[in-house]
Design a protein around this nucleic acid. Sequence first.
RNA 1: GCUCGUAUAGUGUAGUGGCCCAUCAUGAAGGACUCUCAUUCCUUCGACCCGGGUUCAAAUCCCGGUACGAGCACCA
Length: 493
Amino acid sequence: MLQKREVKARREGLPDLVDAEDRPVVLRFAPNPNGPLSFGHARGLVINSTYRERYNGTFILRFDDTDTKVKPPMLEAYKSIEEETEWLTGRKPDRVVIASDRIEEYYVHANQMLEGGFGYVCRCSAEDFKVHRVGKTACPCRDQSKEDNIVLWKSMLKGVFQPGDAVVRVKTDMTLKNPALRDWPALRLQDTKAHPHPRPTIGSNYVVWPLLDFQSAVEDHLQGVTHIIRGKDLMDSTRKQKLLYEHFGWTYPETTYWGRVKVHEWGGFSTSQMRKDVEAELYEGWSDPRLPTLQALKMRGIDSKALRSFWLELGITQKDISVPLATLYSHNTKVVDSTAPRLTFVRNPISFSLEGDTPSEVSLPVHPNDASMGMRTWSLRSKKILLEGADIELMDLRLKEFADVALNDTVASMGSTERKDKRPIVHWLSSDQSRESKLCYTKDNEIHHVNGHVETHAYTAGTIVQLERIGYARVMEDDTLLLCHEELGEENV
RNA sequence: GCUCGUAUAGUGUAGUGGCCCAUCAUGAAGGACUCUCAUUCCUUCGACCCGGGUUCAAAUCCCGGUACGAGCACCA
């Protein structure tokens, strides 16, 4: 009774993997390096690498770079994907596999398939074959002898055929209920003279290339992958691959799927489209804060821990979901707040002269809840202070951590340094201790900025600070600030 | 068209026949604390797609419907 109650308690984290206790667990994440990783890729990285940690297994990063024309790989992406993987998962993958390095291996298996009589070289056009697939009929090539298939295969390798003239198919069953599974294509020809592979060691070396379903299936077996967790758009892929595994007499990995995710603010996004836009210079590179790439999120000050807990919270349901960025931001706030030093930024600053009995300096805590982060000390020698344009309509203010003032024209008369009434508290700057700066933020897919003064500081690029009364921001390479959670209301701009 | 899959509060999510007039988070509203519109804490709001069936008992199993999504590429 008591035990059953425990079973039904809310499950924390991901569900256990099926059949994972008595054998080493091998997982993989296999992106196409046709661009840097984006928000959606993070799911595969987070889920798979989290299971690696739980089962002390092996995590493989595999580059599925077998298409040189439709979604051609991007040379720089190999390196950036490895970096992004390490950033997000906290360590290097246990193994890195590049499909384009393993073409010969795939040829060996293609050859076995033809020798074994469960594959054939099909010379039908795509359109002609479609008729057979829909009509559940065998195409003329299906019944060729093994010998004929081997001869044709060798011709394919020699470059006798043009792309589209020949393809290697896996023999399944043309009467299968699911049309997607009927004699599916395993390898095809690519014109790598016109579309060379971007990796110099590969270039135009091969004309015969495996398709995803074949390459991935063979490679999963060769790498000893035990569990595949991937999007449900690949469900039919699994079914195709299982048919191939049966031919080879292999055991297919345990497979789990997740549904499609959209972000309210972004809608859908594809790497190919982003690549076009970046190359057309619609964006300032792949880390442009408007893009949903991991680089951009990092640039926006989203911590990798926040991204991890975000994806773990969504879990691996097969539901198609749409989440607001606010959810990600709330995770990020939890991660970032306790270590973000407080900093003052005054937007549209208006200068006032302090009058009255002013001290020569004032000290403020770096973090209100963590005294160990120390104090920041501002000189008040010039007696010039800056207040935010939006605040000065209020005549009686309290300068945060300092003193009451009454505003009159360009003069701020000192009042009590003790807090005596409920007058509004505003952030402010001593002009001795500030410099001009810019606060950038994204809104409606545009980058906006507000001019202002920032408290002088020595934080290096990449530091996440909290601008008091504004929000979290990242110190940028050019010394401006970028708002992390993009929620500046109209009235503040 | 064929095939496959999913359906729990605004958004996500837990729940695999009794513990469920349903979990947790987020969101919204209110409040406490606070020399930040931050953080933290408290309160409140709000859901099992519809219709049948099986069963003593259904969010949970079965059937049908509906909605949404995916695959049927010589893309990944």
